[in-house]
């Protein structure tokens, strides 16, 4: 690698032989950054360990007629739903909270490319975690069979797609939205739990007090609207899809758009 001092005019940098950092390489680096710290690596391992523990408890606690693979997969999906967004939050907010964004955005000043790389890395990591969780659900099912349940390996396609994959993809996107909006690790995690735990409880209380509110709640509260994805027959009705779209616009699309716009502009200090 020779220094790129140009011959034409002294002090001019010849960019002729320079190529942009390929997106694949950026994404690979982002994936590496998600796992090369104790925080990132152990949080990922902890999510999977927690899935395993919950599977064990479920295998012993659940009634025998609810010990099919689909049940275990649903349980695993529930655990991921709570914690995977935090993985994404850490991936994004560490750039500001750990301040390495200074280097990241100096090596790739076209920030939109870094953001795309973060999405690619975030989704690659999430899908890997989903696949591993689905494998752990196999272990849970085997354990269920060992404790006397009938072997039932059938999986409802809607459960797999809506309840497991889509619900978690939405969770990952929520993680991105909160992370880019706040760009601060502790604040984003608190914000996420306020959104995912406190908000649905508050809505539940209000809904129980007022039937009018119960009717509009799924239109304005995203957690409530998503319930049909992972309960019942895992197939939202047309109205329920509309509720997901409307509340999703409020809680996901708009915040994510604002967050990305913010990330493109903020000064990394």
């Amino acid at each position: 690698m020779s220094a790129t001092i140009a011959s034409a005019e002294p002090g001019t940098i010849d960019l002729g032989s320079s190529t942009p950092v390929p997106m694949g390489r950026l994404a690979k680096v982002e994936l590496r950054k998600a796992l090369d710290t104790r925080a990132g690596r152990w949080f990922t391992i902890s999510i999977l360990a927690l899935v395993l523990v919950v599977q064990l408890i479920y295998a012993f606690a659940a009634p025998d007629d609810a010990l099919g693979y689909g049940d275990f997969l649903s349980v695993a999906g529930g655990v991921l739903g709570y914690f995977m967004p935090i993985l994404i939050i850490m991936l994004v907010t560490s750039e500001a909270s750990q301040r390495n964004g200074l280097v990241t955005f100096t090596l790739e000043p076209r920030r939109s490319r870094v953001i795309v790389a973060k999405f690619l890395a975030g989704f690659a990591l999430s899908f890997a975690v989903m696949v591993l969780a689905a494998l752990i659900a196999v272990l849970g099912t085997l354990l269920g069979i060992a404790t006397g349940a009938e072997a039932d390996w059938s999986v409802d396609g809607n459960l797999l797609f809506n309840g497991f994959v889509l619900a978690n993809v939405i969770g990952v996107l929520i993680g991105f939205a909160i992370a880019t909006l706040l760009m601060n690790t502790p604040a984003a995690i608190v914000g996420y739990f306020a959104y995912s735990l406190i908000l649905p409880i508050a809505v539940g209380i209000l809904s129980s007090l007022s039937s009018g509110f119960a009717d509009i709640a799924p239109w304005i509260e995203f957690n409530t609207a998503q319930t049909p994805l992972f309960t019942g027959d895992y197939t939202p009705t047309g109205e329920e899809w509309a509720q997901i779209a409307v509340s999703g616009t409020i809680w996901l699309v708009i915040p994510l758009a604002l967050g990305i716009a913010r990330l493109l502009r903020i000064e990394f200090k």
Partner: peptide
């Protein structure tokens, strides 16, 4: 500048790393 790290070396804050 594409792949600017190959042309411009930058150190703004040595502590600004994870």
């Amino acid at each position: 500048i594409p792949n600017p790290g190959r042309h411009v070396g930058v150190l703004l804050d040595a502590s600004a790393q994870h």
